[in-house]
């Protein structure tokens, strides 16, 4: 886990890099932040479980099952916003 709280751009890059490296479908270097990760298969059921674990370990957030929803995991942008909100809550 990183020692400093990342900003939005750092978070997005970190998540982007993780997905490019680990997605089971071929992904180019940068994912469009609005691209639907679920429809494109960039996140499948296994990928969802794994990126959840990645966020928990990398950013030190705790994610409830209920929060692993399409609303939060739909795109790189919603994932970033979700992570930021969790970090904000954790810091408060």
């Amino acid at each position: 886990m990183s020692n400093t709280v990342p900003n939005a751009a750092q978070l997005q890059k970190s998540l982007n890099d993780y997905l490019v490296e680990n997605s089971s479908v071929s992904v180019s270097g940068t994912i469009d932040p609005e691209e639907n990760l679920l429809d494109t298969g960039i996140l499948d059921s296994l990928g969802i479980a794994e990126i959840t674990e990645f966020m928990e370990k990398e950013f030190g957030v705790e994610i409830d099952e209920e929060e692993i929803s399409a609303k939060n995991y739909r795109s790189l942008k919603t994932l970033t916003d979700f992570c930021l909100a969790k970090l904000g809550r954790a810091a408060a």
Partner: peptide, 8 residues
Amino acid sequence: KTQSLLNL
């Protein structure tokens, strides 16, 4: 109503 993505 709220479906966890862990169980598509």
